[in-house]
Structures are given as structure tokens and as C-alpha cells.
Design a protein around this nucleic acid. Structure first.
Lengths: 124, 124
DNA sequence: ACCGTACTTCGATGATCATCGAAGTGTGAA
DNA sequence: TTCACACTTCGATGATCATCGAAGTACGGT
């Protein structure tokens, strides 16, 4: 659904690109000033998602979806990464046929100094 | 239910005080080393509970249940305070006919340094 | 054009949870 | 003991959500 995606030309010259209320990309992430603490905490509160954040922090570099070591299905992993992305905890950009997920340390540290370090300091 | 409560004397001298597996008080809170980050984040993730923590931090002293300014029913407030208590975020002790709720800053700062400050630093 | 890999979307399902009112418990005071 | 106040427990309800498999989309290589 959502029409053929490969089409890059709108059906008619009217409304050339549209008002573009949200952004053309499917994978939206909030700007820094749009990140809300409730959403971030909600995102971090899930054990699987917390583990994803831990692995990103431990590796210290972006990871593709398939590189995470969690015991959930592919679709569930997508769901969790989307939750983290929409909360502003991670950002992701396509890399060939895969997708690189990056921990938004700078933004989180700027908005909630100490939060991420405190969470990561917790003993397993 | 739970038998007549007014009875203060156990039925028999055997098992004078009992092994007391869980503690005689109804309001249990985890010891410092029992506090888990997932539970704490889960507790902080709710908007009402986050507001309770904010008010406790702002006042800088224990507050009785009735002193919180939130727009939920009495029973819902009890539910949220219990969630915070069982997560280890607050501690509460009876004070006459009321109950004083205290933010467990020391324990949280020791376990997850920076977390609470980061959360409280978030702009409303 | 075709295939395979990598990820996403969809719809369903079971579990958890925030919410409430009503009824219960406990404490201090009259 | 009786009352009023402060809080808790209970049971119900609607909402959110983690989970999955199946089907869809996108991209790079052959």
C-alpha cells in the first residue's frame, strides 16, 4: 500500500511536492528539542530496549539491526528500534541494504545530563 | 477479610513472632542492593509518577500522600506511590494517621549516579 | 530481469497497567 | 467507644503494548 514507492513523480503538477507535514522519510526521529523525558524513560524501561542501548554503548559505534544480540524475532526487534528512534534515543540511517543505528549520546547528555551514564552504570 | 485485624495477640505462644519471612509491615520497599534499574525506569516512565518525584525533589522533604498535587483519584495515587516504593524510588513511613513519603536520593545516586539529576534536569 | 539479504509493515493475541468507585483498615481525638 | 480523617485494598474496565508469523519493500549483486 501507500502507492508504488519507486514513483518519484507525483501524479499531477498540482501540489508539486505537497505541504509535507511530516517529512518524506519513513524513519522519523525527533529533533533534539522535541525529545521528551517521559518518552525517553518509557523507551528505556523495556528490558530488551535497555539491552539494545547497552550494546550500542558498549560497542561505541553504530550497529546494524542484525548485529544486536537479543532473543526476539526480527519484527519485534524492528519494533523496539523504532520505539527507541521515535523517543530520540537512537538515530538510524540506511547503509546499503542494511541500516545503521547510532546512540544519540550527545543529544541525551545535553538534555538530561547524567541520565544515560546513570542508566549504564547499573550493575547487570 | 484477613481475619479480625484488631487481634494483637497470636493464637498461641508457639512461634512467638514467627520466622518473619517478609517483614510484618504491609509497605515493603527493596533494600538498596535489591533495586533494579529496569524497575526504576518503569516507575519513572509514568507521567503522574514522574510528577510525584518532581514534587518530592522540589520540596526537598518527605510529603504525605495528601500533599501531592496531581489530578488522579485517591486510590490511583496510592497505586502510583506503591509502584514508586516497590521500585525503590521512594520510601514511606507512617506518621500518626498519615504517611510520609521520602525520595530515596542517596540510594538512587549511589546505584545510578546522575540518573535522578538527569531526569530532574529535563525541561517541563 | 532475477535472486537473496535485510529490514519493515500488518493484523492478531495475550499480558500488563492506569484508572476509578466502593468498601476496608488504622490512627488519633472527642 | 465512637467518630472523622487518611490511606489502602478490591474488582472491573478500557487502553497500551510486547510479541509473533506472514507478507511486503528496498537494495545490491549476478
Amino acid at each position: 500500500m501507500r502507492a508504488m514507492s519507486t514513483a518519484q513523480s507525483p501524479p499531477s503538477p498540482s501540489v508539486p511536492t505537497g505541504p509535507r507535514e511530516v517529512a518524506p522519510v519513513a524513519h522519523r526521529a525527533p529533533e533534539r528539542d522535541e525529545i521528551r523525558i517521559e518518552t525517553v524513560l518509557q523507551a528505556l524501561a523495556d528490558p530488551v530496549r535497555l539491552e539494545l542501548v547497552r550494546q550500542l554503548a558498549r560497542e561505541g559505534r553504530p550497529l546494524m539491526c542484525g548485529a544486536f544480540d537479543v532473543s526476539v524475532s526480527k519484527s519485534t526487534l524492528t519494533h523496539h528500534l523504532r520505539t527507541l528512534r521515535e523517543a530520540g534515543v537512537v538515530a538510524s540511517r540506511p547503509r546499503g541494504t542494511t541500516r545503521l543505528n547510532r546512540l544519540r549520546r550527545d543529544d541525551l547528555d545535553a538534555l538530561f545530563p547524567g541520565l544515560l551514564n546513570g542508566v549504564l552504570a547499573a550493575r547487570r
